[in-house]
Design a protein around this nucleic acid. Sequence first.
DNA 1: CGCGGTTTTGAGAATCCTCAAAACCAGTGG
DNA 2: CCACTGGTTTTGAGGATTCTCAAAACCGCG
Lengths: 252, 252
Amino acid sequence: MSGQKDRVFSTRRYPCEECPLRPLPLFREFETQELAFISKFKKGELAAAKGATVLVEGSHSAHLFTVLSGWGFRYKLLSDGRRQILNYVMPGDLIGLQGSIMGEMQHSIEALSDMLLCMFQRDELPELYQRHPELAYDITWLASREERMLDENLLSIGRRSALERAAYLIAFIADRAVGVGLNGKKPIEIPITQQHVADTLGLSLVHTNKTIRKLVERKLIVWKDGCEVTDAKGLRQLAGWEGLGEGKRPLI
Amino acid sequence: MSGQKDRVFSTRRYPCEECPLRPLPLFREFETQELAFISKFKKGELAAAKGATVLVEGSHSAHLFTVLSGWGFRYKLLSDGRRQILNYVMPGDLIGLQGSIMGEMQHSIEALSDMLLCMFQRDELPELYQRHPELAYDITWLASREERMLDENLLSIGRRSALERAAYLIAFIADRAVGVGLNGKKPIEIPITQQHVADTLGLSLVHTNKTIRKLVERKLIVWKDGCEVTDAKGLRQLAGWEGLGEGKRPLI
DNA sequence: CGCGGTTTTGAGAATCCTCAAAACCAGTGG
DNA sequence: CCACTGGTTTTGAGGATTCTCAAAACCGCG
């Protein structure tokens, strides 16, 4: 289900000044000075292969990361192996902050596809707070955003039916994905298995399969090596969800 | 289920220097200088009566708060009225941060008991970030902590059985409550109804009742005008939960 | 061709839900 | 003091949802 190995550290820099993400309309403009600091803050890049564990629960990783490309997911395990996926991570997301701020990681992160990550040094975070209050504010902003997403997910798992839950999940991921330009072609393709969906929704694999089948019958999605979203509006409608309508956001 | 009214603003100050919470062993020591700033940051106090809505989803409240005394809960509603309680708030918790950082509140907060809240001005937050990086860091710390609690709750709702879920919830609340000295007598008394438990666990009221009854039969709790925890260890064991074992934490 | 991972299907069982009504209890007004 | 009220807890019963177990189908890959 996961591999610890497959990690490749590359010191070769993807210079922040030529960041492929930053030009996207989703992200706010940054001062040259801020950019310079971030560039200095960045210690290198980490390539994680599909299936690799990027961060492990219980560890005290010295790093935190911003996703440059690829997909991943955050999860927790119960002692008997039951798994709950907490959220998905995609380009622009800051990961490992919890561990950096509070010490120990309380969740794991696994790569859903090959990923490229910007690496930052945990112990330089205080310096960032000292010297760049706006960036500090941005980090809090990102933490609040994660909290907001978790609130939504909790609402969904707690109070929506299986079908609504599935529709919400896919609509939610699709919405985020288009924001960061992950839809190369028209329909967004989400590289997940039905086991991931089950572990996200808190359902069994069998029932998840039957639920997804209903979404396919309704022509809201196509399932083919992952999920292709064909009718995002229909999904939102089924879930009774407005969409996340985010404005500009920071990118560390 | 809630009342918008019952809010009493009192300008009378509970001076930060005589904060009843700060001396607790749970909270980290603060520099005189930091304390002075917080004291200036604090604009007054808000008394919320039991059942009052402290913050409403969709609003752009000009304030954020730290709970001085009393209990409350954060929740979200689906358009048809289904309610999900996201977390409980108790003394020392900072609330309304999401709204302050990101603009609009995306959840509501209701008082479970009479509450007393320290009021801060949202638009002075940037100044705090400018002038007191350590406090800024503390705020991020608190946001990360909330995220961590949500992760745990999500795991619980998604992957634990009804009985385990109930045990976890009560053990979790109890653990937090003893930390902030909410157990006047021996057994911790949690001022919630079974409807609250149901809306937290994502269960129906009827099934919640039957589940709680099992906990009572096992002599883990007593239900009498709310929940009295008689065997916290037993609850943790049933839930397969370690406890939160928090170290020192900040108090804004 | 065989293998492992993923999806699909069937069937019976457990969990959890809804509906409905009663019991209980503190507070209120007559 | 008592009847009434509203909120909360309890109980019963049938039904829907979701689960587990088991097996087959499918599919890319070596």
